[in-house]
Nucleic acid binder design. Sequence first.
DNA 1: CGCCGGTTTGAAGAATTTCAAAGGGAGTGG
DNA 2: CCACTCCCTTTGAAATTCTTCAAACCGGCG
Lengths: 246, 246
Amino acid sequence: MSMAVNAAFERLDLKLSTIIRLTEAEKQAITRLPVIIRDLRADQDIVREGDRPTQCCLIVEGLAYRYKIVGDGRRQIFSYHISGDTPDLQSLHLERMDHNVGTLTASRVAFIPHQNVRALTETHPRVLAAFWRDGLIDAAIFREWMVGMGRRTALVRIAHLFCELFTRYRAVGLTDGNSFPYPLTQTDIGDSLGLSTVHVNRVMRNLKTEKLVDVTGKTLTILDWERLKEVGEFDPEYLHLRNPPS
Amino acid sequence: MSMAVNAAFERLDLKLSTIIRLTEAEKQAITRLPVIIRDLRADQDIVREGDRPTQCCLIVEGLAYRYKIVGDGRRQIFSYHISGDTPDLQSLHLERMDHNVGTLTASRVAFIPHQNVRALTETHPRVLAAFWRDGLIDAAIFREWMVGMGRRTALVRIAHLFCELFTRYRAVGLTDGNSFPYPLTQTDIGDSLGLSTVHVNRVMRNLKTEKLVDVTGKTLTILDWERLKEVGEFDPEYLHLRNPPS
DNA sequence: CGCCGGTTTGAAGAATTTCAAAGGGAGTGG
DNA sequence: CCACTCCCTTTGAAATTCTTCAAACCGGCG
């Protein structure tokens, strides 16, 4: 297995360990899951609404996202998924996909047959609990986005999203100082937070001129974490991390 | 145990049975969970953000809801919970509550110690899967609300919410023809869908003058289900019911 | 060089909020 | 049984946020 896949499994272990500290045996049982690796280009669907998957995916490298297309072609993005995430674990229990999972960048994805995941959770109940818990955190993130879309202004929402992304990248060791990979377009941000691209653009300019963030190439740098947290009304509690950012 | 509590457990069984058809033994194991019944007045919190619950709750009668209060006192409602629902099952795996659960009406609630739920899921893995699945449907509902807040107009959102409530009440046998219990205020609707009370009022008037719904007392009647579904862009797929409404 | 996806800008328009106040209806106390 | 109160609904008008449309710009890449 490639280094990258091992690293992704380690990030998964790390994430799952946040309350139930897994034993070495449990971590190894996860790492030894049989996988089929696929390399996908950007903007490819991993699973589609209506599919009845027989396998789950683990993001090894790249950025994936969950989304739905509504009647008139508009898109709502629900979440972003980085290395170590398992965005469609729900397919274990919900036969039919009610939304899409796709890649935002070229990505390497590991597919694991449901039967092997089931076998793992049957023999390792604590791993099962960890997977369950992981999905509950997904739901907590959805709720936090709902708060944003329902009750916060565009500026707060965008600042909050940057705080969340930074915190999650940091939790799995994928930040570089105050920078993290940022391949998102302003349209993606808008489709995530319920805003038009034009408005995202104007708010981003504020964040930049206020020296809160800087975007260079496909990297976002947080220039003033304290103030960004304040502007974004960001409290990482909902992410249920063991070591929240200082 | 009172009739009402039995009925609530039957609704829970019904809900959990939607994919994994539970055996009589499994249903009985659920029904025999030890419970402490409490009667709560309207507008009481069942659990609060920051709490570390040692028990889960089952709604027996009444209407509960999950919500969060943001900085300036504004409220975001995430979901509504009726008889047979277990709105804080997540506390089994997420130690600290990241939001509140409260009553909207006077309600009867059954509390079940975590240790008994854990014992049940250890001896009955299929019940565990059913609980897990139930939480995944919660998350699917969150996503659907996100679509609404991000990408649908106020009219569509409100019509959609009414469709959802009707469908969920119907699934547990609590509708009366095309009517269902409706104790929500226009402020509640607004706090659910990210709208002001004033605007909710104006949209409700449209729905009423268009003869789509009627609100009398604390009952909402759907006057034209087909058109309401259409206006609300409602597709019940996300609820993952076995028998979606015709 | 020229294309392409993404960003930026301007100006007009729409949806929705805010503020302020009046109206209604159900329950409570006198 | 009336009067009062409280909560919720309804209405009007002005203000704001955000969207839409349209076009120019920009930087990387084949």
